[in-house]
Design a protein around this nucleic acid. Structure first.
Lengths: 343, 343
DNA sequence: CTGTTAGCGCTTTCAT
DNA sequence: ATGAAAGCGCTAACAG
């Protein structure tokens, strides 16, 4: 059976309390006693029961991250940053994948909030916001990352970046190169466009530069490389004269790259492609993808700090704070963009 | 404060026990009582404390997965399968990323084993095997996936695939196409070759076909696309006459694809490339990568079943079972392989 | 310094 | 059908 404090106590001829003190390194225990206890614990192969401790103390040094689709490379890359930030602050990080199913999301939320961890960082989008709000009210803070709604007053604590700005930077780059006939790939399947703000930011910048994007050149796609490939293929077939494609994220842009390859369209010679995010694959593609880097590391760090602040009460939960990373999104010029070909 | 059973009990004028019964759906409670209790619980926003429950019942419906590098796309893809399998069996899955650091791995192992979850599935390679053995002995089963050691008697429960066979299949494909001058990219940095078995399987098959691989054409690389690109570039520069490259996994193969692009080497016209695993990116690359699919879904499913069997005692832990997925690895012929160019 | 005691929130006999 | 009480393993006053 499992070794508990009691077993050690019995062997050492003391009480559980003393053993507890000794193991916790409390000062009120003689050195010899501590040595003996530690030795016995080692012999017996004692493993503290974190569940019992958590129940007793009322908290566990554990944080959780909820992602909707761990197979989308953005999430693992972000998770890495969150994990690092949590660890640097002495916390464990448990990662939960909801498969983009709000029901599963709610279950995890409940389970985690039931004392499994002290706080949660959730990626926006796959959880019902009222589930998030409910958990927040139940006393376990949840901070939402990459919130894309334009509202000034979010329903839950958020940390995000200015996606409209990122899109504007992308637009600026394309426009500066001289592109005028630009197609757009935007994430969002049948019913909703997820990357609305990015689209708006792009269109506004283009418009201000006097460039109007033909609505027929704005196509939506499921958020995968294959989705990007399919949509880009359709777009390029219908509108072969486009000189550039802006995608609201790198996965779609990478898909566009593949479509161009298939169609033997030279990049960047005949077609420029730009994305947003700067996932790792963006620099590993051929040609390497020009993109606008989103500050995932900053978001991760701030999210953890915010969460910890919410947990220890040093940051008030009401009204829910909204933090937009101040540093501007950074343009990464690589190999997939160039001036348009002279006809 | 947090709503507990007691609060509900007080409001309903009954005891905690009755509330507990009611919430658990036990039959020994009148319908009206149950209805009232459930209603009150809802009103009060009751969230059961899973920690307390876990402590009380001595187990939690939670499993954990430990991966070494969540940024390597193989792991998230595998995690997805494990998560699915666990969920189908009514368990939660917590994912932990160890950053390939055995120290961090040990910490997670300890913490998880301390009743955070009932069992653990760990990817081979990043944990010290004696830590794994220790946890196993402490009563929390750990099953190791993708074990690549040739030993017949593993130190811990394992489920894996026949990597040597997979490599042989890859070799067979290349040989059947007529390739004779083949370069090899093998995962493993300075000190050790991780994919030893795959390499052996490949070399043996080649040898049996009378094809000897020049040792100078076997290069090791860190397990990333960039690593594959660098190594392939060096290889192809030193040995331009190679007609094919075998990589011990897809990431390296994808890197080789990129190197070939950079060097303007047509694929598969002048160079064929094949990998192992069939990660998602393999079918999304350009050209799409020919590879040998490893049965990740089967491994995930068997791992969970084995783990659950170990937990409920229906499968003996001693000697540690070793399960090699019986179905053969499957060749996925895509666009990156073709017969060698006639000189 | 060490022991006693109570309690974290829930489950689960055993009574009633 | 409901209540009383013990206990999961640990921590944290409070005593001694």
């Amino acid at each position: 059976m499992r070794v508990t404090l009691r077993d050690i106590a019995a062997r050492a001829g003391v009480t559980k309390a003393t053993v507890s003190y000794a193991m916790a390194g409390k000062p009120n225990v003689s050195e010899e006693m501590r040595a003996r206890i530690v030795e016995i614990a080692r012999e017996l192969g004692y493993q503290p029961n974190v569940t019992a401790r958590a129940l007793s103390v009322g908290r566990a040094p554990t944080l959780a991250l909820m992602v909707e689709n761990i197979a989308n490379p953005f999430y693992p890359e972000f998770a890495l940053e969150v994990e690092r930030a949590a660890r640097e602050r002495g916390h464990f990080l448990l990662i939960c994948n909801t498969d983009a199913d709000p029901e599963i999301g709610r279950h995890y939320l409940r389970r985690i909030a039931g004392q499994l961890s002290e706080g949660i960082v959730a990626m926006a989008g796959h959880l019902r916001i009222d589930d998030v709000v409910a958990v927040n009210q139940s006393g376990v803070p949840v901070v939402v990352c990459m919130w894309e709604e334009p509202e000034a007053a979010p329903p839950a604590p958020c940390v995000t970046v200015d996606f409209a700005h990122a899109a504007a930077v992308a637009a600026g780059h394309l426009l500066a190169l001289g592109h005028r006939r630009i197609g757009v790939l935007v994430d969002g399947d049948e019913h909703e466009l997820h990357h609305q703000r990015r689209l708006e930011g792009f269109l506004r910048t283009a418009c201000e530069a006097g460039v109007i994007i033909d609505p027929r050149h704005i196509v939506r796609a499921p958020d995968t490389i294959a989705g990007g490939t399919d949509s880009a293929r359709a777009l390029l077939t219908a509108a072969p004269s486009l000189s550039a494609i802006f995608a609201t994220n790198d996965l779609l842009a990478l898909g566009a790259l593949r479509a161009a390859h298939e169609m033997r369209i030279p990049i960047p010679g005949q077609l420029s492609v730009i994305g947003i995010t700067d996932i790792r694959a963006a620099s590993e593609s051929y040609p390497a993808l020009t993109t606008v880097a989103v500050q995932t590391r900053e978001v991760a760090t701030y999210a953890i700090d915010l969460l910890l602040g919410l947990i220890d009460g040093s940051i008030p939960a009401d009204p829910p704070p909204l933090l937009v990373i101040p540093s501007p999104p950074e343009l990464k010029v690589r190999e997939s963009t160039a001036p348009p070909a002279k006809p």
